[in-house]
Simulated scan of single mutants.
Amino acid sequence: MPVLLQFETPRLILRQFTDADWPALHAHYSDLECTQFTFRRALSEGESWRAMSSMLGHWVLRGYGPYAIEEKATGLVLGTAGLWYPNDWPAPEIKWALSRAYWGQGFASEAVRGIQAMALECVPHLNLISFIHSDNAPSIQLAQAVGATLEKEVEFRGGQWQIYRHPKQRLGDD
C-alpha cells in the first residue's frame, strides 16, 4: 500500500505542504531555540521556504516524506512531522518539528503516534528510527514516550547523536 498523502488523528490533519504553509514553518525555522540541534542557527525566510521545498522533494525521491501538521480546530499549521531519509542519515526516520508556541500540548506525540501507525500499515518494511542530537532532551523524552528505544550513540556532523528505534508494532499490541 502506498504511503498516505493525508490522514487524521483526533486533533490533527497530517497533509502535503502547500506554498501557503511556509510562513507558519518559518515561525519554527527562524527560532534559534527550535533549530539549535538541527541547523544550529535560525533560518531566513528564503531558507525556510527551501527547507519546506526539500521536504516536498523528498516525497518525489523516496515515495514518502514529512507532512504539514494542521490543527483541526484552528486550521493553523503547527510544524512538520513524517518520514525522512536524507542520503547521509543512518536509516529512515520519523522526524518532528513544531513551532515553540505549540510545545508541551501533546501535538508532537499525537502526530508521531499517527505516523507510526500509518508506517506500520503502509511501509512495514521500513525499520524506523528517530535521529536525535544527544543534548536534545525534549526530543529524547518524546521518542521514549512514543515507545522508541535507544539503540546507540554515533558521531555525526561534529556532534553526538542518538539513534532511537521505533517499535515494529503498535504499543499495546501483542
Score class of each variant (00 low, 15 high):
39 F>Y: 09
70 E>I: 01
17 F>E: 07
59 W>K: 09
16 Q>R: 15
169 Q>Y: 03
170 R>V: 01
79 G>D: 07
79 G>Q: 07
16 Q>H: 12
29 Y>N: 15
106 G>C: 03
112 V>E: 00
97 A>H: 08
45 E>N: 02
77 V>A: 08
119 A>P: 06
123 V>Y: 07
78 L>K: 01
146 V>C: 10
89 W>R: 01
132 I>Y: 02
55 M>H: 13
37 F>T: 06
113 R>D: 00
147 G>E: 07
130 S>N: 05
116 Q>A: 00
7 F>H: 11
105 Q>G: 00
91 A>N: 01
3 V>T: 13
55 M>W: 13
120 L>K: 07
95 K>Y: 07
97 A>S: 15
161 W>F: 15
82 G>F: 12
18 T>Q: 14
65 G>T: 06
27 A>K: 15
172 G>L: 10
71 E>R: 13
52 M>L: 14
135 D>E: 14
138 P>T: 03
113 R>E: 00
119 A>K: 03
124 P>M: 13
115 I>C: 04
19 D>L: 14
57 G>V: 11
27 A>M: 11
167 P>N: 08
174 D>K: 13
128 L>E: 00
149 T>G: 06
159 G>Q: 12
66 P>T: 04
67 Y>W: 13
138 P>Q: 02
8 E>D: 09
119 A>T: 14
41 R>V: 02
14 L>S: 02
39 F>K: 14
52 M>R: 08
174 D>L: 14
16 Q>F: 01
114 G>I: 06
150 L>Y: 08
17 F>P: 10
113 R>Q: 05
44 S>D: 04
44 S>E: 07
27 A>R: 15
40 R>Y: 02
125 H>F: 09
138 P>A: 02
62 R>G: 00
150 L>P: 02
171 L>R: 10
53 S>A: 15
119 A>G: 04
154 V>I: 15
82 G>H: 05
162 Q>P: 01
104 G>S: 06
99 S>T: 06
42 A>S: 14
150 L>E: 13
158 G>V: 09
80 T>Q: 12
101 A>E: 12
136 N>L: 09
34 C>V: 10
27 A>N: 12
34 C>F: 05
92 P>W: 05
7 F>C: 09
155 E>Q: 13
126 L>N: 01
151 E>C: 07
117 A>V: 01
26 H>K: 07
174 D>S: 13
54 S>K: 10
25 L>Q: 10
72 K>E: 02
137 A>Q: 14
28 H>W: 13
32 L>A: 15
17 F>H: 13
20 A>W: 11
104 G>C: 00
100 R>Q: 12
120 L>G: 02
168 K>A: 06
100 R>T: 03
3 V>N: 05
132 I>D: 08
163 I>F: 05
42 A>M: 10
160 Q>S: 13
3 V>C: 13
105 Q>K: 15
3 V>D: 04
138 P>I: 03
77 V>S: 05
16 Q>A: 15
21 D>V: 08
129 I>G: 03
48 S>I: 11
